[in-house]
Design a protein around this nucleic acid. Structure first.
Lengths: 208, 208
DNA sequence: ACATGTGAACTGCTTCACAGCG
DNA sequence: CGCTGTGAAGCAGTTCACATGT
């Protein structure tokens, strides 16, 4: 199958959010123009994005909210539960472990890991902090789909090596480093300092 | 001046990080090939990125580490301090307030805001939690460059309206909504649920 | 000899515009 | 008639390849 652009997948997430809101407000159909307005794009872009995966609309009418919702859920692989572990029980790690935007979308945080023996064994919101050195053993019994990396920059690449060795195939990286992974492992990075630098650049370049 | 692509600015951040590391390891020059290897790109891309802003290298030699470091810092607007406020003293907000990757890069967190009167007045790491309803008054006396938005989705657009009214020109958004802002306000969004959905998509599409 | 800087070619995402169908 | 679905055109970002300077 043809490779889908990252930007397209991101927009599908945005459309899905709007559809869920529309459903709650009792709407039964939406047009590509409405989806576009709320997604910050154009109606042609919306239709093109969807066309990669099929024909979901009715000409002259628009899209059925529940049908399109289900289709996008399917496309994004949200028709199942994903097991997630968080690596690093520091400030960001614990904030993420307690964040409740994950569960309603099928991302189930099953464990938090840390190397600090002082933290191991404690519980956050019912989730145990486990010893990271045991991660390979744990994953052998309970399969993990996604690892969220919330460790300091220094330890990040090493943690990734161990996760990849243990069979993890997807990583969401919060450490401010460019991770190196085998081609069969998917990585997304969120780098807050880098985002602030982007804003700094914009503010500066506008002043010129 | 010509509009610079977002992707270029992001890569400059990556180069800068590598340069700072190189400096610490005592290197005095780097080639575009080295920068490329660590930034996950190609040497031609590195040279093209830099060429938008000037000629920083020496043919046959490469780039002087301290000179290029300073040049990129300048380009990104990091030659000064930026005042940052965090809006929302929940889990993510407090984690961000205490995150110490900001200060070394010139981003100074001067206040945390919340609407919950129970939180107002408390201190986190020496930073006071202030009443968000006073934000306009506060900004009149102390100028703010960047607001980091860490509030629930419901309140995000309203918080943005008040920040924009108070004169804020740059927002880093952690709320899972598509913000609407005037064209002179810069926004970057970090949406963790959306990143997980991207990974979910990749895992699913590979399985097919 | 070596590595930069840059026009030119290329690739791929976005926008246009209209045929097709309810 | 309205809105989708989609080839074709347009545009932007990346890669190529080489002239240029040290």
């Amino acid at each position: 199958m043809k490779r889908i652009a990252d930007s397209t997948v991101r927009r599908l997430s945005v459309y899905l959010r709007f559809l869920e809101g529309s459903s709650q407000r009792g709407l039964t159909t939406v047009s590509s123009a409405e989806l576009a307005r709320h997604g910050g794009t154009t109606s042609a872009q919306v239709r093109k994005d969807l066309s990669f995966f099929g024909s979901f609309g009715k000409r002259g009418l628009g899209y059925s909210v529940p049908e399109l919702t289900n289709s996008i859920r399917d496309i994004l692989g949200l028709g199942r539960e994903w097991n997630v572990v968080i690596v690093g029980a520091g400030k960001i790690g614990t904030a993420l472990a307690q964040y409740d935007g994950f569960r309603p979308r099928g991302f189930h945080v099953v464990a938090v890991y840390d190397t600090d023996s002082g933290k191991v064994g404690t519980r956050w919101d019912g989730i145990v902090v486990r010893d990271f050195s045991q991660v390979a053993r744990d994953l052998a019994s309970q399969p993990i789909d996604i690892a969220v990396l919330a460790v300091p920059a220094e330890g990040a690449q090493d943690a990734v090596r161990r996760l990849v060795d243990a069979g993890v195939k997807a990583i969401l990286n919060f450490a401010p480093v460019q991770l190196k992974v085998p081609p069969d492992v998917a990585v997304r990075s969120v780098n807050m300092a880098m985002e602030l630098e982007g804003l700094s650049y914009e503010l500066s370049s506008r002043a010129r």
